[in-house]
Design a protein around this nucleic acid. Structure first.
Length: 265
DNA sequence: CTGAATGAC
DNA sequence: GTCATTCAG
């Protein structure tokens, strides 16, 4: 290249410098809603969908099951840095526009005797207003008894945040056990699960570990470890392959395990 | 923290 | 639908 073409050289240099600066800039998009993010670049472990209806939101993903008017799973990453104490105002639950078959209307829950139980908890997405508000979609809730929701289920969610803080980050999958002939509420017949499950995967090397819970839909004062089950057993019940992208040897080892010795309660 | 219910705009 | 307020586990 001839040096007489100076403007062009300067332009190239400028571009190069800009690119370098950009690459080394801290990634702030989990705290700043004004930055457009690559959607779900963090989700590498999404479960399979029995309905072929995976919905990807900015801060969590889900598989919707129209027959039961709720998600069969909701999955998201929970990082230590996500945990914040900021007080946010609760928005109202609205339908999830990404669900083409229409997610349940919140009125189905009104006077049903059941509360609108978050699957991806609002408290796990408090790091930004958009993340928080995004959990208030009816595709992210399931009918839960009030004392169950604020009782043992709340305890499990708080324990999950405790572990996320301790282990830096967790991948979380949660939902109700959906099956035929469940009790329903509202005009749209939203199914009331008889059990709820939650799976936690600590994928940070070198000690990858996982734990799964299957909790009956009723308040209990029993310690949480009483509800530990293997991921395999949940896969048998739900028909979902929870970590299809994990290397088979790791997957096999993690999923057959129902021990909780690696987790402090 | 987890939620509901009510009345006014 | 939004807002403000009050209340319960």
């Amino acid at each position: 290249m001839h040096l007489k073409n100076k403007p062009f050289v300067y332009l190239l240099l400028l571009l190069l410098i800009s690119a370098v600066i950009y690459l080394f800039l801290p990634n702030k998009d989990r705290n700043n809603d004004n930055v457009t993010t690559v959607i779900n670049s963090d989700f590498n472990y999404l479960p399979t969908s029995t309905t072929n209806t995976i919905i990807k939101h900015q801060y969590y993903s889900l598989s919707y099951h129209e027959d039961y008017e709720q998600a069969e799973w909701v999955a998201y990453e929970l990082k230590k840095e996500d945990l914040s104490n900021s007080n946010r105002k609760r928005p109202y639950f609205i339908q999830d526009k990404k669900v083409k078959t229409q997610s349940a209307d919140y009125r189905n829950y009104k006077n049903s005797g059941y509360t609108k139980g978050h699957l991806c908890p609002a408290a796990d997405r408090k790091f930004s207003k958009n993340a928080y508000d995004e959990t208030f979609l009816t595709s992210n809730i399931s009918p839960q008894k009030g004392d169950f929701n604020s009782g043992i289920w709340n305890r499990l969610e708080r324990k999950t945040r405790y572990w996320a803080n301790k282990d830096e980050q967790l991948f979380v999958v949660t939902g109700g056990i959906l099956k035929n002939n469940l009790k329903t509420i509202g005009q749209e017949k939203v199914a009331v699960p008889e059990q709820f499950y939650k799976i936690l995967l600590d994928y940070s090397e070198p000690e990858i570990k996982a734990i799964a819970f299957l909790v009956p839909h009723e308040e209990s004062k029993a310690p949480l470890y009483k509800f530990v089950v293997s991921i395999d057993s949940l896969e048998t019940i739900t028909g979902i392959d929870f970590f299809p992208t994990l290397p088979d040897t790791i997957e096999e080892k993690l999923e057959s395990n129902s021990s909780y010795k690696d987790w402090s309660f």
